[in-house]
């Protein structure tokens, strides 16, 4: 008789730990062939609340890291993904991607992490500036992270969609609570393991598996989430915008049908979407 393999219990990465839902609920996920794959935690609004707490706790420390340090950590995350490339490709393929599509998803995701890693100590120089005011003041505009940002990831591309939304948010010092694809959650759970080994402080990225419909209203109304970056349907957009109105939350939607693999899917302006601009004045005099 052949050896019975040990199956992994999928647990999403929240607050630097791998959690089960506080509710104890799970939902089964099948692979592309229709076979039972695993039970995935069905995170609830309370899990979301806890994740926001974790993200808020991690935020100030992460934002205070030097830009150089944040860049190196994102680069390290790229290293982790590269090192487990084969495993990630197999996983994506298991859920229906062709091998070549899966490889492309992983490789572009890795490159995207490296792209944003490189921006960490440069976007400020492109987006901020000194302003020549018409008075004896030194005036400069710098960027600051907004705080805790909610991310709602697309189903596809299963990995690149998530990475493309998360990386530009965290590079500036924001922290993220992300809802991962409901249809294909396992690649994101595997990605969580890479986050855990990448030197990224716990709580900076928090991944929640579960039902979008259940979590979306809380993403919309949680006032401690200062921004939302999401792919969403028209109805979901409306819900998110209505919720955002209650605390003047910033909302950024990305169409799910963009070419995620193209160079145009990445830019410092994606970083800008979750930045605040702060302008400081000081008199010039002795």
């Amino acid at each position: 008789m052949s050896r019975l393999p040990i199956t992994k219990t999928p647990k999403p990465y929240v607050g630097g730990a791998f959690i089960r839902s506080e509710s104890g609920r799970v939902f089964p996920v099948k692979d592309a062939a229709g076979n039972f794959f695993a039970n995935i935690p069905q995170c609830t609004r309370k899990d979301l609340r806890n994740a926001v707490e974790a993200a808020a706790k991690a935020g100030p420390g992460w934002a205070k890291r030097t830009a150089y340090n944040r860049g190196q950590i994102l680069y390290r995350l790229g290293e982790m993904l590269e090192a487990r490339r084969a495993e990630m490709i197999d996983t994506l393929a298991l859920f229906g991607a062709t091998k070549s599509a899966a490889a492309k998803d992983v490789d572009v995701s890795t490159d995207r992490l490296i792209y944003y890693a490189g921006w960490s100590d440069k976007y400020e120089q492109v987006l901020g500036n000194v302003n020549p005011v018409a008075a004896p003041y030194f005036n400069f505009t710098v960027t600051e992270p907004m705080g805790v940002v909610g991310v709602l990831a697309p189903d596809s591309p299963a990995l690149l969609g998530l990475v493309s939304l998360v990386a530009p948010v965290i590079v500036s010092g924001n922290t993220v609570v992300a809802h991962v694809s409901e249809k294909t959650p396992y690649p994101a759970i595997l990605f969580g393991e890479m986050l855990a080994t990448s030197d990224l402080p716990g709580g900076v990225v928090n991944l929640l598996s579960g039902f979008r419909k259940e979590l979306l209203p809380t993403f919309a109304t949680h006032t401690h989430l200062r921004a939302i970056s999401a792919t969403a349907s028209a109805d979901e957009r409306k819900t998110l915008r209505l919720g955002a109105a209650e605390s003047i939350k910033r909302v950024k939607f990305t169409d799910s049908d963009i070419d995620w693999f193209a160079a145009t899917a990445q830019s410092p302006y994606a970083i800008r979407d979750t930045l605040e601009f702060k302008t400081t004045w000081h008199p010039i005099g002795a």
Binding site: N129, N131, P132, V133, A134, A135, Y137, N139, T141, M146, R226, S247, I248, R250, E276, F277, K278, T279, T280, W281, H282, P283
Partner: peptide
Amino acid sequence: GVVWANTFNKFDPTSPFGGYKESGFGREGG
């Protein structure tokens, strides 16, 4: 969004103005 150090209520077209949190979003100027 604006910090006035050793001054207050200064404005200029080159200087972005706008808030954090429930003071709004987007900037005006600059």
